[in-house]
Design a protein around this nucleic acid. Structure first.
Ligand code: MN
Ligand code: MN
Ligand code: ZN
Ligand code: ZN
Lengths: 142, 142
DNA sequence: ATACACATTATAATAATTCTAAACTATTGA
DNA sequence: TCAATAGTTTAGAATTATTATAATGTGTAT
């Protein structure tokens, strides 16, 4: 149980009770090599596949938003028809593949720092993020 | 009727019949000095204020999406809880004011061209857009 | 063990958007 | 001109994503 212990501590740190649903969500979300992007429906599927029990959709929504509020998840607006979340909560840039509807992180080394010359007076900048929309190149295809 | 004639021609060019609802929408959307950003609900309010007749919400949705498909409007995803549209259909960058929920164009001169060093293979870039989220600076305020 | 606060759940409610099908209108060409 | 036709508007129903409710269940501290 070493992994789950970490999640239990993590949840406690944040003031959330480590229920079995939340620990399972932590496993699905955070027990992996790399960060990833997901929609609520994709997440529900992943959790269902890894649990014998059923998890309520309301719990998934509530817990995702709890994690978001505590800074463990970040919501990314890309497509008005679906909500994307990111387990990488740092400020970073994305490709959005319009064919597959996949979000992909842009490597920090592959893009220069954005240089804003003017800001709106009386406002502070919370984030500067770039979205690069891509689609398959059908140039040589009938 | 010089202004409306333009809109009638514009609609015809695009293959849309110039009904009085569509001409009114054109006036609200395009008969102005500067481009602007709106949500569907804001647009419905604007149209209602300028018409004695009532316009159906379905017509506003359908017509906005028809204009979008024909390239006269652009949808901008900023906030998963509401859809923004832009009468400036060129590729450009935005401030989003998280206090007022207003979208504001960034002047081309105030930001350097984004330089991407690597793209995803087999994909072409459709757009590169920057979103700068700002909020009031309460630093010196209790 | 007990009590309490907090969490989960099924279900209902809400809100945004899209669908439907009947009534209406712009266009065309006889 | 004026019907025929294709396209449009409309009210209201349907759908979808999300949030609220309130009864039941669970984690935690004593
Ligand atoms: Mn949200
Ligand atoms: Mn749309
Ligand atoms: Zn990311
Ligand atoms: Zn704009």
């Amino acid at each position: 149980m070493p992994k789950n212990c970490n999640f239990i501590e993590k949840l406690r740190d944040v003031g959330l009770r480590p229920t079995k649903q939340r620990v399972k969500m932590c496993e699905v979300l955070f027990n992996r090599e790399k960060t990833f992007h997901f929609t609520i429906n994709e997440l529900v599927k992943m959790i269902s596949e890894q649990m014998n029990q059923k998890i309520s959709l309301a719990t998934v929504y509530n817990t995702v938003h709890a994690f978001e509020k505590k800074g463990y998840l970040k919501e990314i607006s890309i497509d008005s028809h679906r909500s994307y979340f990111d387990t990488n909560t740092s400020s970073h840039h994305h490709f959005f593949d319009e064919d597959t509807h996949q979000l992909i992180d842009i490597d920090k080394n592959d893009i220069d720092t954005i240089n804003l010359k003017k800001n709106i007076s009386g406002k502070k900048i919370n984030s500067i993020e770039v979205l690069v929309r891509v689609a398959s190149d059908n140039q040589n295809q009938k």
